[in-house]
């Protein structure tokens, strides 16, 4: 069954059509990749799904619920987590605190009890911590746990961002160019982790990716985008041999 369904969405910025009539649906449990040349509207599409942008027209459904007008901060609660192209971590915090923020949607305490740090708040904090540690173990981030993000290399930051998204325990994970800035070895690791996340945790993944190797290895289906329009959707092999996609990439 389809987990996320976008129907005929369009968005323009001051006359420039960034996304035109895009429709697709993502089946629960699959890895869905979005490829396309720079400026094709891939990140815009992500921003539409995570509700940072309002679409001009179109409809967006997640888990049979219409989320076309849901406020952005509700998206995480529904179970959609994302990463950003150039990492948007909380720079002055430790890795651990970054992950704990992913737990924010699960908080059950109110302001007053937090001011007094009641046993309930303490229990909740410990619970959060245990769950964050599970993610740390999964992605092998133990040795960075107490380091400030600002001091970490780019590759690690990318993984911390994935970890933070996982802390939400999402049903759907949006990865915006997870391999950009990673070296081949790190990209290799990434593809294994994607597999783990997808198969062991059962998280559906949509990713924007340029590395065709990674795309064809990890994804079940691929959507090619150019100039805000959907060119084709299909298996990685189909897309790689699609004439229209080749034209968009290589020109006529």
């Amino acid at each position: 069954m389809s987990l996320l369904k976008m129907t005929d969405m369009s968005l323009s910025f001051g006359g420039v059509l960034a996304v035109q009539q895009v429709s697709f649906d993502v089946v629960e449990g699959e890895v869905f990749s979005i490829i396309g040349p720079n400026g094709a509207g891939k990140t815009t599409l992500f921003n539409l799904i995570s509700r940072l942008y309002d679409a001009d027209i179109g409809k967006l459904c997640f888990d049979d619920e219409n989320i076309t007008r849901t406020p952005a901060h509700h998206i995480a609660e529904l179970g959609i987590a994302r990463t950003f192209q150039n990492t948007e971590l909380f720079e002055h915090e430790t890795v651990l605190h970054n992950l704990l923020i992913g737990k924010h949607v699960y908080r059950k305490t109110n302001l007053l009890s937090e001011f007094c740090f009641t046993p309930r708040v303490r229990r909740q904090e410990l619970q959060f911590r245990r769950e964050a540690e599970d993610v740390i173990d999964l992605l092998n981030l133990q040795r960075y746990r107490d380091q400030i993000i600002g001091n970490l290399p780019y590759g690690v930051r990318k993984m911390v961002e994935v970890a933070r998204a996982l802390c939400i325990k999402p049903k759907l994970l949006l990865l915006d160019e997870p391999s950009s800035g990673l070296n081949p070895e790190e990209t290799e690791d990434l593809s294994f982790w994607l597999e783990d996340i997808n198969e062991e945790l059962g998280v559906t993944i949509i990713m924007v990716e340029h590395d065709m190797n990674l795309v064809s290895r990890s994804s079940n289906r691929v959507m090619a985008l150019a100039d805000g329009k959907c060119l084709a959707i299909g298996s990685p092999q189909e897309i790689q041999s699609n004439a229209e996609v080749l034209r968009a990439y290589l020109g006529d």
């Binding site: 995570s50 940072l52 406020p71 952005a72 901060h73 509700h74 998206i75 995480a76 609660e77 987590a81 994302r82 950003f84 948007e88 971590l89 909380f90 720079e91 002055h92 915090e93 605190h97 704990l100 923020i101 992913g102 737990k103 924010h104 949607v105 908080r107 305490t109 302001l111 937090e114 740090f117 708040v121 909740q124 904090e125 933070r164 939400i168």
Partner: peptide, 24 residues
């Protein structure tokens, strides 16, 4: 050291990702 304080610091460092992490 509670969730609200953490949310405040998250907003300080990146509003956009704080929002995507479910912070109102």
């Amino acid at each position: 050291r509670s969730p609200t304080g953490r949310a405040m610091r998250a907003i300080r460092d990146s509003e956009i990702s704080a929002q995507s992490m479910g912070i109102h």
